[in-house]
């Protein structure tokens, strides 16, 4: 028990407490001294339009990525569930994006999408879709869409594997009984499949929401939050604040706000999932 407590304290409680503590100070990364400033950091951040821009970007990033990952992952799981042969091989192929470190993925996509020598832009020109290589990461909206698509590609396999596992627990005799009763495919899906997997899906949504919202590496490595802050999310904003501008006090305040928001979202999600579980009983 004691080792577990020590690990939890060292890995989680300490950084949390120190972040909360520093959020009330004017701590600068390269200045040895600091003083308490009350809620000044929070006031500064909440009146900074860059923070709200990053927050809005984070919301869009999370919602669109999550919807995309669920759609692609769920569809792939349904398709794979019907495959009779080589299911393991397909599953392995589809999980490949998850096997690579995000730094490899980020640099690979950056390379693929480069507007001068990138494979994809030049392929589109060769195929006659456009006269000049498209600049995927230059225009604000397009850059954001491209990042979301990369995130969908990256995250969908995780949804797929989990949903596939859940699908395989649905008793086959229920489908057979429904078929005998004359139920259509969509009715079997709606009244047998969905109830069996909705709790798993709900939990996946919770985990993925937190994961995607906190995602930093892919965005930072591909666009650095640019152009002009169009892909800057709250974690990138917090990083720039802490390591770019070195205002660790303000950066800590951002993470505390992020924590409060994510806890509120999680509580909401779990209320819904709890309601589903009660319904099932």
């Amino acid at each position: 028990m004691l080792p577990a407590i020590i690990v939890v304290c060292a890995l989680f409680l300490y950084p949390i407490c120190s972040s909360i503590f520093y959020s009330f100070t004017n701590k600068n990364l390269i200045r040895p001294t600091y003083r308490f400033v009350g809620f000044d950091n929070y006031a500064t951040i909440l009146t900074d339009k860059s923070f709200w821009n990053a927050f809005l970007n984070s919301l869009k990033w999370t919602v669109f990525s999550l919807i995309g990952q669920l759609l692609v992952g769920f569809t792939a799981a349904l398709a794979l569930n019907r495959v009779k042969h080589l299911k393991g091989a397909y599953k392995t192929l589809l999980i490949i994006p998850w096997a690579f470190p995000s730094i490899v993925i980020a640099f690979s996509w950056k390379w693929i999408l480069n507007g001068v020598y990138g494979i994809l832009p030049n392929l589109l020109v060769q195929m006659g879709f456009c006269n000049e290589p498209p600049q995927f990461l230059t225009e604000k909206t397009l850059a954001f869409i491209v990042l979301v698509l990369i995130n969908v590609w990256f995250g969908a396999p995780m949804i797929m594997v989990n949903v596939l596992s859940a699908l395989q627990t649905v008793p086959q005799d229920q489908y057979e009984a429904a078929e005998i009763d004359g139920a259509k495919k969509w009715q079997s899906f709606l009244y047998i499949t969905v109830p069996h997997i909705k709790v798993v899906m709900g939990l996946l949504v919770v985990l993925r929401t937190v994961w995607i919202f906190n995602n930093f590496d892919i965005i930072y490595l591909i666009t650095g939050g640019g152009p002009a802050g169009s892909t800057q999310t709250v974690p990138v904003y917090a990083y720039d604040m802490g390591w770019g501008t070195k205002l660790l006090g303000q950066s800590s305040a951002v993470t505390v706000l992020l924590f409060i928001f994510m806890m509120a979202v999680c509580i909401g999600y779990f209320a819904v999932i709890g309601h589903w579980e009660k319904e099932d009983k």
Partner: peptide, 26 residues
């Protein structure tokens, strides 16, 4: 499953702090 997910979600949310926690004497 719910407890596990809650734990994971909590851990991931808390991990947002990790990048900014910093020890410092005066």
């Amino acid at each position: 499953k719910k407890k596990l997910a809650l734990l994971l979600a909590g851990v991931m949310t808390l991990s947002a702090f990790a990048g900014c926690g910093s020890d410092s004497g005066k």
